[in-house]
Amino acid sequence: MPSETPQAEVGPTGCPHRSGPHSAKGSLEKGSPEDKEAKEPLWIRPDAPSRCTWQLGRPASESPHHHTAPAKSPKILPDILKKIGDTPMVRINKIGKKFGLKCELLAKCEFFNAGGSVKDRISLRMIEDAERDGTLKPGDTIIEPTSGNTGIGLALAAAVRGYRCIIVMPEKMSSEKVDVLRALGAEIVRTPTNARFDSPESHVGVAWRLKNEIPNSHILDQYRNASNPLAHYDTTADEILQQCDGKLDMLVASVGTGGTITGIARKLKEKCPGCRIIGVDPEGSILAEPEELNQTEQTTYEVEGIGYDFIPTVLDRTVVDKWFKSNDEEAFTFARMLIAQEGLLCGGSAGSTVAVAVKAAQELQEGQRCVVILPDSVRNYMTKFLSDRWMLQKGFLKEEDLTEKKPWWWHLRVQELGLSAPLTVLPTITCGHTIEILREKGFDQAPVVDEAGVILGMVTLGNMLSSLLAGKVQPSDQVGKVIYKQFKQIRLTDTLGRLSHILEMDHFALVV
């Protein structure tokens, strides 16, 4: 994948999101292997301009796509893939009243899908469409860049269908997702969380590099694949309309690839034109409109599966009536509230959605109805927002919020430890010299600072030695090549209790 991002070429006709291997024109390309080798690009942008032909009021008969309808489940399912879809609609009884809503608040519980998330729908649909058009064949390999849930859905379907599955996901995604993927037989590649989507090191860039190296491999490409919004247009939206008897006044959905909100909203605009569509985008993402909503100094966020630093091709923002931004604290607070007060075992993005819903639905009156999409299960986040310690460490809970008995030293300040200034190293000294210094002084790690004293990161003896043994660096290389740029900081005025929580999850903390 090139470091400079080429513009994806656009073909003359058809839909841009065809499933299957992508040609340089962004659509299915038939021909000899030699032709494909000559024409197939190194990668295709996940934010390529959409060429979708959908228009409100256009006859369904003019759609270029294969459409399906929700099917009634048999008493005995032939395999677990038949437990994807037909998820329950559940009334939220307490939270709406707590925040003064007059309307009825309903939750579409997508964590009841077989793999635990709304992404099971698009995973199965992308595979079925690729099999139907002859792209996927027995023994082929599926590769997908994902925040985890699409990966789980694909790995689940691949396990049943017999495909090899490789999932490329950023490091910030939970260990629970990784464990589930491994249990399903998927191979996992992790990428830096802070890598831009168009960087060769991003999950998108690495996935395309693997595709170019592995024979008979395919990126189904949830960011561009029409099967993504079509899955929701054909099934999720129809289920909502049936469950609500066609009567709903507002739908609120958090947005990642945009397939969920695009597919549902398009069908609702056709069948229930008075329904307002509300999009939820986390602070630090750029999906919301108008652009002024996205202006923030924050560039990272903890909530998973929603928000991006690019506009995915499948996201149709014209069908969203209003956007709201959400933050991590309210997302996790509301997710825990949904679990504790409503018994809905949902993930953090569901918290984002409901946090926005109780604001947006203030305009609705008694007798009206708001539906929220709860995308995934708490299963993926047992060591994250479900953990009091994690919430404390991230600053989303305060010590006084917890009532468990603490040891005698818990409320003492870090400054009472009488710490001395640490050994520091410059980023320009060599790895070999740094190892000598650390061994001589008896230290395992040291902060790396520039000549102005600005902290650049941390270097550890173990990481340097393993990097040297693996051949990633040489003793003569500058130590700046092996620094940890993500590390926890703590102030002298913070409590030892807070430091204790940090050290339970990290090997060190830097006192500043």
Rank of each mutant, 00 (worst) to 15 (best):
V204W: 06
S73V: 13
T191C: 05
N228Y: 00
H203K: 07
T257G: 01
T262N: 07
P6G: 10
N113M: 02
A207C: 05
S123R: 06
S50W: 01
G116V: 13
R58G: 06
V10E: 11
S50V: 07
K102G: 02
A159D: 02
M169V: 07
R224P: 06
S202A: 08
G153K: 01
I152A: 02
P33I: 10
L230W: 04
R224I: 07
G151C: 01
H218D: 04
R125K: 11
A24W: 05
H65Y: 05
P145C: 04
Q7T: 10
I166E: 04
G115C: 08
L105I: 15
H218V: 13
M250T: 03
L77T: 05
V206K: 05
D120H: 06
L106A: 11
L124H: 11
E213A: 14
D47V: 05
K172E: 07
H232V: 00
F112E: 03
T5C: 09
G85D: 06
V252T: 12
A130G: 10
C52A: 01
R196V: 03
S217I: 02
P170E: 06
G11E: 10
K172I: 02
D245H: 10
P41R: 05
G263I: 00
G151D: 01
W208S: 04
A253S: 07
K72E: 11
V189L: 11
A159F: 08
K25N: 15
I219L: 09
A24D: 08
M250R: 02
R209K: 13
D198F: 06
C103D: 01
D234C: 01
A114S: 14
H232Y: 03
S175N: 12
A265R: 04
G258V: 00
E104A: 12
I80Q: 01
D249F: 02
F197D: 06
K172N: 05
E104I: 04
N113S: 14
C165K: 01
E40N: 10
C103G: 13
R125W: 09
W208F: 07
E9T: 10
N216W: 05
I240T: 07
A207P: 01
H65M: 13
T191R: 02
A195W: 06
Y163I: 04
H218W: 11
M126A: 07
Y163K: 03
L248C: 09
V118S: 07
A60G: 06
V252A: 14
D35E: 15
A237E: 07
